[in-house]
Nucleic acid binder design. Structure first.
Lengths: 139, 139
DNA sequence: GTGTTTGCAAAGTGTTTGCAATTTA
DNA sequence: TAAATTGCAAACACTTTGCAAACAC
């Protein structure tokens, strides 16, 4: 069961991604994957690491997030100018965005179905379809 | 016909938006709205203004884009970390994103229909649904 | 040991701000 | 002439980079 062996799981996760299980990467992987799916910014994750007494520089957090993303362990979500979120849920799904707070929330793929999608322009193909449902507090 | 009286049209557009038709705002409005719909960044618009011998500072371009957006004359589109696009098409529609070039392309609302949309979380309502179809060159 | 990874500080990018000078109504 | 707008330069937030020291295999 995933949540019971976080250390071994994180090592395996990194091994599979061909990333050396260094102290920093392990600690960040455990913060990211021990528990429910999350949406974090580099700064959020760095703060969290500091709070749990893990010494990691912010630069390393950025590097690690990008490595994880490139390895398919994370998905980058861009919804606000000048800030990237990283989503631990890499399966097919979409997002609600609370525009007041900036909070992201997953929408399972099954909850949003397309009746029709346009064809990709000639010479290209669809890599991914991202849907952001922007929310406001209701009246 | 819109394209035949750009000056008068731009003045009216600004008047309607309750923005004083200053030299800078008029010039930017004409660059933006004389012709087809476009997707511009602040820097692109600033460069374009310079090329057409319109003296405007980059700060004013930013301010103006935000004022236009707030007035509903433009829609801001965020698809890449650290860069905002402004879309002169403010009607209901979606976007293709060419991930190699960063180029945006409109998808008319009619070309993309939803079979089902999730309910907004309690306490909120849907303000807008943004769909980005990410493209890659095909194999 | 050898190549990889890290931390730091510096640099970079896109954007915003404070404020005096200018322009508009 | 009163209020809005502009330009400049400095400040900002977030992110990336260069390189010596530390670490993993």
């Amino acid at each position: 069961m995933t949540t019971k062996r976080p250390y071994t799981d994180s090592v395996n996760r990194l091994r599979k991604a061909k990333l050396r299980p260094t102290r920093q990467r392990l600690a960040l992987a455990r913060l990211l994957y021990d528990g429910d799916d999350r949406h974090v910014t580099a700064e959020m994750l760095h703060d969290e690491a500091m709070r749990s007494k893990v010494r990691v520089s912010l630069a390393t957090v950025y590097n690690t997030l990008h490595q994880f993303r490139d390895a398919g362990l994370l998905r980058e979500v861009v919804v606000q100018p000048g800030r990237s979120y990283f989503d631990t849920n890499t399966t097919d799904h979409h997002h609600f965005l609370n525009e007041e707070t900036g909070e992201l929330r997953d929408i399972p793929a099954a909850a949003l179905r397309f009746e029709s999608l346009p064809d990709a322009p000639a010479g290209s193909e669809i890599r991914r379809v991202d849907v952001i449902i922007r929310l406001r507090p209701n009246s």
